[in-house]
């Protein structure tokens, strides 16, 4: 679905930023020799669309701007995609990226609020982001923000939906009528221990959200324009909270990770693997 016409130049710019984000992801997990590349690569187009597709209203020069949109990473282990995106967006220097996960760095292994600026919520313990978003949305209502101000985008893992707290939050967001919330499910089908369908089945996942009163869109999570358009549509809705089920591939963009997603949930590539990964990333998604 396309709701906005984009120029070839805009499209090209989005594709290029996806490449840069993917490069940072493999470089920082290589530097740290740890971290979570697979679930970061699967969410690359989601973050690129949010920050570079004209979706999230934010200001890197004023991270605490009180009418900003909030992007919240609930699957708090996918820090590489967050740090890569925030650095590209100008929140901090890309020089910091090699310090990922080292002692004293702002780039902690799992997200820590305001470290670096632009990170909205501490996470890593799964299942808390949607509830936090409900609190933010209630606060924005109390503060009388305009309907299109202070939107909240929450990136949730599909494996993360095993956590019961999500469903408490999903229930309460529609109960309170919090249309500012858009959840984006990174539906990459793999969790820590293996394929989601074997570990704990969540399908029909979209029907479940719909039954809880949310508007549901199904999106190809690696079509950055489609993701952007769906986000803009969700952002404009004022009748109910919205969810996008983004169909993705864990490790997308790096063949040996995408072919063995369970093996690349939480480790960094070797020198040789890094070279191959960068070469493939520069070639673009095929």
């Amino acid at each position: 679905m396309t709701t906005s016409a984009s120029t070839a130049a805009e499209t090209e710019a989005l594709l290029e930023v996806c490449k840069r984000i993917r490069r940072h992801i493999v470089e920082m997990t290589h530097a740290a020799q740890s971290g979570h590349p697979g679930g970061s690569l699967s969410a690359t187009e989601i973050f690129a669309a949010l920050y570079f597709g004209g979706v999230a209203r934010h200001d890197p020069a004023d991270p605490q701007w009180d009418r900003r949109d909030r992007v919240i990473l609930s699957k708090g282990h996918a820090t590489p995609v967050v740090y890569a995106t925030l650095a590209e967006a100008g929140y901090f220097s890309t020089d910091l990226i090699p310090t990922f996960r080292s002692l004293g760095t702002e780039l902690q292994g799992h997200v820590v609020r305001n470290k670096p600026p632009g990170v909205e919520m501490s996470g890593g313990a799964l299942g808390m982001g949607l509830s936090f978003a409900v609190g933010v949305a209630l606060g924005h209502q109390l503060d009388g923000l305009a309907e299109d101000e202070g939107q909240i985008f929450v990136v949730v893992g599909d494996g993360e939906l095993n956590e019961g707290q999500n469903w408490e939050a999903i229930m309460s967001a529609s109960h309170f009528g919090l249309h500012r919330i858009t959840a984006i499910v990174d539906r990459n089908h793999f969790q820590n221990d293996g394929p989601g369908d074997e570990i704990m089945r969540i399908d029909p996942v979209g029907d479940k959200w719909a039954a809880f009163g949310w508007g549901v869109q199904y999106v190809n999570g690696h079509d950055v324009e489609a993701v952007r358009d769906a986000l803009l549509l969700a952002r404009a809705r004022t009748d109910a909270p919205q969810v996008m089920i983004c169909e993705t591939v864990k490790g997308r963009g790096v063949s040996f990770m995408a072919e063995n997603p369970a093996g690349w949930h939480g480790k960094g590539p070797s020198d040789e693997q890094l070279s191959q990964a960068l070469e493939e990333i520069d070639g673009g998604l095929t």
Partner: peptide, 28 residues
Amino acid sequence: PDRWFTVGAAEQNMISIAAGLASTGKTV
């Protein structure tokens, strides 16, 4: 009434909602 919310019997949700509200400057 505008200053009070019940979340039902869901304490985990309540605590994370409290954190989100506090992040908007409220004393929760």
